[in-house]
Write a protein that binds this DNA or RNA. Sequence first.
RNA 1: UCCUGGCUAGCUCAAUUGGCAGAGCGAGCGGCUGUUAACCGCUAGGUUCUAGGUUCAAGUCCUAGGCCAGGAGCCA
Length: 447
Amino acid sequence: MADHISVSQISNYIGQDVVLKGWVYNRTDKGKLSFLLVRDGTGFIQCVAFKGDLTPELFETISHLPQESSVIITGSVREDKRAPGIPGGYEVGIKDLQVVQTADPDYPMSLKDHGPDFALDNRHLWIRMQSQWAILRIRATVMAATREWLDTNGFIEMSTPILTPAAAEGTTTLFETEYFDEGKAYLAQTGQLYNEANIFSFGKVYCFGPTFRAEKSKTRRHLTEFWMLEPEIAFCDLDGLMEVEEQMLTHIIQRVLRDRMPELKSLGRDISKLEKIVAPFPRISYDDAGKMIDELREKETDPEKKALLAFEWGMDFGAPHETAITNQFETPVFVYGYPSAVKAFYMEPWPGRPEVCKSVDLLAPEGYGEIFGGSERMSDHDLLLSRIRAQKLPEEAFKWYLELRKYGSVPHSGFGMGTERVTSWICGIEHIREAIAFPRTIKRVYP
RNA sequence: UCCUGGCUAGCUCAAUUGGCAGAGCGAGCGGCUGUUAACCGCUAGGUUCUAGGUUCAAGUCCUAGGCCAGGAGCCA
């Protein structure tokens, strides 16, 4: 028997006396009544103190409790439609209250809106707010559902190194650090190359960890440190990869809808939009996506937006292009077959069309853009070697990677999922920085 | 790196043509038995980002700098 219960389980205790341990999120006084909105990590619940039920000293204490004071409350649970909270509709009539610590009354995070600078400087306190709590709970469910789907579909989790010897893709900027007498080491921007080794031992694998990008990206879709899931699958072509992606994402959405409905509602998310996210998703080629953009640009009347939609075959899609495409669909949409020139060196060429590669991006609706990026990997040793040489990558560093193509090479594919991008989309929030507890951006490493 | 915008009370913001530094929330005190961003009364709270400059007078105009944000590029 636990010595206290959690708010998330409150509906099991109607009519009973319970003990709650938590923090005063808000307090409203009304004469002989004092309403405390108490959070305990699992939910938010209204606790009501009535002067006539308590000693004068205790009521005086309760009606002056500062926001964020830590408390242990004993009281009786009852249903009441008026009661706010998560799940809401229940409240606790206070019979006793023990103050663990009276919070300093200068707590800076009022329950009103805050600007980004202030909110981020106070991120260690901001995460206590209901909106942030809901987002980060959903994030945890996204991650749990991801692992759940992979683990029940034959994948095993491999940990790939964070400290790596060289640029994996040779294109992006990496964080650099000294590594004893071995020269420079770099924080990993992907575990993919290692997972390509892992599949030859384990078949289907994934890694799920932090990844680092030192690019000076300054947008609502970028973090310098984010959590990326990367499955890699032996004997899998591009079509097989898309199937894995849509099945896994469908599972994630279903699990969030099942387990995090109160959190989604508290964020004001349009649930009906999430309920439509069921595999299969539309698959369109880069060529067709380009034509779609041409048509949309013709229809666009705003000259500024029109200019942003400028497109010619061969260029990568920017954020405005992705938004234009995804606005045509209610589910995520696959765009496959990008020009090889704008993608990484290791992607398998399209049969008969060497200028195109077997790459696929999964773009989320409502303007959220790329959430998954993947490809079928090049499986021919000599072709891969020629690409490494053509891109002037350090051949020695890729010696082991090339060897994978010498000993039992097979068609294989994999993708990366941006956890915070998926979470942002599911939550319907404006900025990716709210989808991780302590965001790292180009201008922030504090707190 | 480039483009754009912002910086005034703890927070969110207002301040007309250059003319007395303001409000709401938060904090403190008091009132009210059903509050949901409660309400009502009272109190405290300011180096207007920094440094120069113009002016009788600068939150406002000029110059330089700092910080933050949004977007582009790049990417998940």
